[in-house]
Design a protein around this nucleic acid. Sequence first.
RNA 1: GGGCGCAUAGCUCAAGGGCAGAGCACUGUGCUGAUAACGCAGGGGUUCGUGGUUCGAAUCCACGUGCGCCCA
Length: 913
Amino acid sequence: MDKLNYSETVLLPKTAFPMKADLAKREPQLLEKWKKIDIYKKMLEKNKGSQSFILHDGPPYANGHIHIGTALNKILKDTVVKFKSLQGFFSPFVPGWDCHGMPIEHQVFQQMKLKDKNAVDIISFRKKAHDYAMKFMAIQREEFKRLGVFGDWEHPYLTLNPVYEKTIVESFGKLFTSGYIIQRYKPIHWCWHCQTALAEAELEYWDETSPSVYVKFPVKKFSAGRVPDHSFFLIWTTTPWTLPANVAIAVHPELEYCIIKTDAGHFILATTLVDTVCEKLNWKSERIATFKGKDLEHTIYSHPFVERDSPVVLAHYVSAEEGTGCVHTATGHGEEDYQTGLKYHLPVISPVDERGRFTEEVPEWKGMLVFEADPFIVDSLSKRHIILHSENYRHSYPHCWRCKKPVIFRATKQWFLKIDHQNLRELLQSEIQKTTWIPEEGQSRISSMVALRPDWCLSRQRLWGVALPVFYCEKCGTAICNKETISKISSLVEKFGSDVWFEKSVEELLPENFTCPNCSQAGPFIKEKDILDVWFDSGVSHLAVLKNDPQLKWPAELYLEGSDQHRGWFQTSLITSCAIEKHAPFKTVLTHGFVVDAEGRKMSKSLGNVITPEQIINQYGADILRLWAVSENYQQDMRISQKIIDHLVIVYRTLRNTMRFILGNISDYDVQFQVQESELLEVDRWAIARLNQLVNDVTGYYEACLFHKGVNEIFDFCNIDMSSFYLDYLKDRLYTHGKNSCTRRAAQQVLYQILSSLVVMLAPVLSFTCEEAYSFIPFKKQESVFLEHWPEAKAPDNNLLERWLKFFEFRKLVLKQIEQQRAQGKIGSSLEAAIFVKANPQHREFLESFQPYLTNLLMIAEIHLENGNELEVKAEKTDLPKCARCWIHHKTVGLSKQHPQLCEKCLQVVNDK
RNA sequence: GGGCGCAUAGCUCAAGGGCAGAGCACUGUGCUGAUAACGCAGGGGUUCGUGGUUCGAAUCCACGUGCGCCCA
């Protein structure tokens, strides 16, 4: 036999599992398979009756295509759900969408080319908004499916579903009847031209010239000692028309104030601003006394032209750069002013009607548009020496996006959820304490937000949402919302959807023969025009979804969202849950960071650094995107760039190739041919021990949601333990030992076990690849890897692992010596090496204990152990002849006349055939 | 401006007071029976900056810079 023919007697790896992944092409085929066998349902059936693990999906907004952040979020969720499911938990995943709200309203407005919100036909508008939301829900659903995310995609929860809307109405009713809901005035952006409320997104800012005035307010009762008679606070404002609504003067608690003596009287203002102000007002001043801002608190002053006394209050937003350091505060005309007002229980005064004109509360300028009144106000007050100086001032000012007119802040009646009713804030805090936050910082973050958050403003003056289910008695003005009315409305909403509020008359919406609970009149009644904040919609998802679906349960084990949801969904869900159920809706909350580019900057069109999931999927495959999602530490910001993707492709190839190599070598594996554990070589038992260690580590990391650590461990195992050592070493046994020899079968058995564990542990991440690889495993038990069981975490043999660590240290020395010889051109393959070792008796004995396999383990020709003091390793080229079949240099080569090129091992194998 | 974070090799991550460590990438090289694969070796660091505590700091503290999320 010549050399070539011996090659034919060697058992080389054989598998149809391709080396080239071709994921963009193959993944859709696997999606088809999953659809055909209904894998999601089968996974649930497998675990039916087991303990359940519920991850409650936070609903993305049904607008536009998914972006890399939404993809990251769903992939992480899917990884958790698949892991729990493989572990045997009953883990249904019901995806959801947030369907109401302003972004959709905007889009539809633009599509309809509407100019005036008040002229729109609400019913047909809402129909269009509904269709718009459904369209993008369907688009996003396909995009999520393409990522390989498993879930009940045919029955998602949508906040516009009538059954969902019913829960919204009922939840509001429960809150109302238990006293959490109140109505109070609050300033909002208002367009006096369009006569409509405006959201922040509907404002356009550009420069505007306003009158800037200095106004004096006489001190009535000074809190920080005594002041001379005829002392005044000096304030500065660019909106003179808000002066009638002044209810306080705000000063900064830490800033220094002084009282100055001038020809015009005594004035109190911030010390740092005295010079600028005096220059402007042409004053010569003398400083009499100084105070800290906080000492001025509770000073009482009189309004200069309205019959009213008001207090001095403290606020941190007071600037020491501009004005006088004394800030005119009109709670009805500014957000900051309003917040300060809440703190000091100031009245909210807003004597301006919806057309932007003064009401009769301001008789002097009654009926005038506030901006047109400005010059008259300045003129009149200047004459009365109340305004001491005025000039033009250019600053950025908000304008209506539709009519481009400058907007005003105007107080209107709004509905609120009271955060301090029935100690709700304390309950929120104690439930936050009881919840597990991953990462831990989440707890202090949400806790500090809850500590300071104001009442939740629930009303919106918009069209696309669920109407606030409140009626008003026209006779006595009472706002009506009780069990009776809620029960009627919720059953109508369940039947007809929330459109019913706009379609039906007030009589049809109220129970029959309804009378006002306050004045007992039988009407007439009016329905509320405002709708609920969309955050309320998603905030009750735990009630609408977890409580209404029998396979789910409340509270959920896990909420998993981006860190922005500390203010958003986590908080809104917690508030509704604690107010209604007195308990948090989640046990654990996990947050991830935001996706940024290679430099750590956020993705934006203007920076041109946007990477879409679609790009990655089409070019590399969803598994690469999934690998990215779990390879980095999601607790920080997640970087993505072409370089990072390239790196992941290489990582992926290594994992895929490891699977492929093992598949190739177990193609003729037969479960019937079981090798007893005692018949395994020590190195095989080491491999099993390492596998057990890996399973333990990975299970622990996954359970702690530290996926990147788990995946890193798997990668190191495949790379360091398998590829570099064990698999390389096993080639001789697998290729050249007898087909049914114990040594070869033992190797196959270990490899089978390793691969079986690997595909399951990687399946939550590389779902497509593992499903594909699983289908090539002989004697597999299930039709999908996702119906497998999580590998059992057996305790690894730590003594054995430690012993082998010492062996690997020695191996490293040997490899280094061989490399030196190779560099000198003396040795090519390590199989040509003869190794000479001097070692102390103890170490020598240690090495002897690996015999007779030491040369095989090191993949060398010969090894000679001698006693010595220091450990010394030398490599030389062997003189032994090379076996033509197994390529090992061995002294037995040439002993056979029939096969002079073979060693005794190969001789026997060839003869046995 | 405020709150909560983050910053270690070109990249992704470790080390949480005691010699800064893996994998990938890179460079060199071997093999040609994992072959658009696999093996071996090597170079690569002001641990963002400044100051402090300490015998000793990537690690603890303060200030700053840059970046992200939330709020104003």
